[in-house]
């Protein structure tokens, strides 16, 4: 603001004129920089002329830092803008930290950040990783503009919340059972009647972290969901895997704590017991419950989860959970009731 004030506007005009000349490869013979420096140093020169030399060097350093930070800021603005357009978040490495995009659980990028690389002495890596990341983002611009069709990304053994109707459009959610925004999205879907208008299915994607999973029982729940998809209960009005998801996302225990919070905080054995109890409650016989438990721990389910993970990370290529594909678009993060209607 000070730069455009009446007092300094003429200096800004001169600087801008010089900048324009330099970027168009024309000489700029202004003494603007020297003039400004001399005027800044003049009060010091009158009182302590010996300090003019060091102060002059300090001004040069400060000026260089200002230029570098300005250039870097411009770079970050461009990068954030492109990331926001492509991924719905200005911070691709930690999407939850960007308040400009929709609320979501971030899929953390394990690549060292710019600062972490610098601190570890990897200067080339710091710039290299950043530029590679930006390049990837630019390369994804066409995919952002494409027409998204959920049918092209359906997982194996997709189960639908309601009976599949070929006349309805298909919608595909990417969810982590432990993510609170997935809970909110499910509630928005029901409130908007979205599940009645669409053939709604999902990919369960447990978000990985540096030391396992972001929500410690997400993998376990996902294994059970996939096992239930492999062993559907005949005659069930709603697939049992969806019944379990509905319970996790919409119901509370007798202490008023949401089942999602209970599962997220439970030890694996307790969580397993809950899942098995719910399976029985939704109609599975004890033998079927045992079969599901066995299949959940099988390589087959592990392979399905690995395939789905690859589908989410490479084909859908989202960095935010939940994401949902419908109406020809990929919606990253929580979608409001209004947008679902």
């Amino acid at each position: 603001m000070a730069a455009v004030s009446a007092r300094y506007r003429r200096y800004l005009g001169t600087a801008w004129n010089c900048t324009l000349r330099r970027v168009t490869f024309r000489p700029c013979d202004t003494t603007f920089k020297q003039d400004i420096k001399d005027h800044l140093l003049a009060p010091l020169a009158v009182r302590r002329p010996k300090l003019v030399g060091p102060a002059s060097i300090a001004l040069e350093v400060v000026a260089l830092l200002v230029v570098l930070t300005t250039v870097w800021s411009a770079y970050v603005v461009v990068k954030s803008g492109v990331n926001l357009y492509v991924y719905g978040t200005c911070n691709k490495q930690d999407s939850a930290s960007c308040s400009l995009g929709a609320e979501a659980c971030a899929i953390p990028d394990q690549t060292p950040t710019f600062g972490e690389s610098l601190l570890s002495g990897d200067v080339i890596g710091a710039f290299g990783n950043d530029f590679v990341s930006l390049g990837e983002t630019f390369s994804q611009i066409p995919s952002r503009m494409q027409n998204w069709d959920a049918e092209e990304y359906l997982p194996a053994n997709a189960s639908f919340l309601n009976d599949y109707d070929a006349k309805k459009e298909t919608a595909l959610e990417v969810i982590d059972p432990g993510c609170t925004y997935c809970l909110q999205l499910f509630n928005n879907i029901e409130e908007a009647g979205f599940d009645d208008r669409m053939n709604l299915t999902y990919i369960a994607y447990p978000i990985a972290s540096a030391d396992g999973y972001k929500f410690k029982n997400s993998l376990l729940v996902t294994q059970y969901l996939e096992a239930l998809r492999l062993n559907p209960l005949e005659g069930a009005a709603t697939p049992v895997d969806w019944e379990i998801l509905r319970r996790i996302f919409t119901e509370d225990n007798d202490k008023g704590v949401s089942w999602q919070s209970v599962i997220n905080g439970a030890e694996p054995d307790a969580a397993t017991a809950l899942l098995q109890d719910w399976s029985a409650e939704f109609g599975l016989s004890p033998e079927q419950v045992a079969t599901v438990a066995s299949v959940a721990a099988s390589d087959e389910v592990a392979d399905i989860i690995a395939t789905n993970t690859q589908l989410v990370e490479e084909s859908i290529d989202t960095v935010k959970i939940p994401s949902i594909i419908f109406d020809g678009r990929r919606h990253d993060g929580l979608v409001s009731v209004g947008d679902l209607e």
């Binding site: 003494t31 020297q34 003039d35 001399d38 005027h39 140093l41 003049a42 009060p43 020169a45 009158v46 002329p49």
Partner: peptide, 13 residues
């Protein structure tokens, strides 16, 4: 010393 700078410094006085 740069004469322009000296002129600016003298102007301060």
């Amino acid at each position: 010393q740069d004469s322009h700078r000296l002129a600016v410094f003298l102007s301060q006085s």
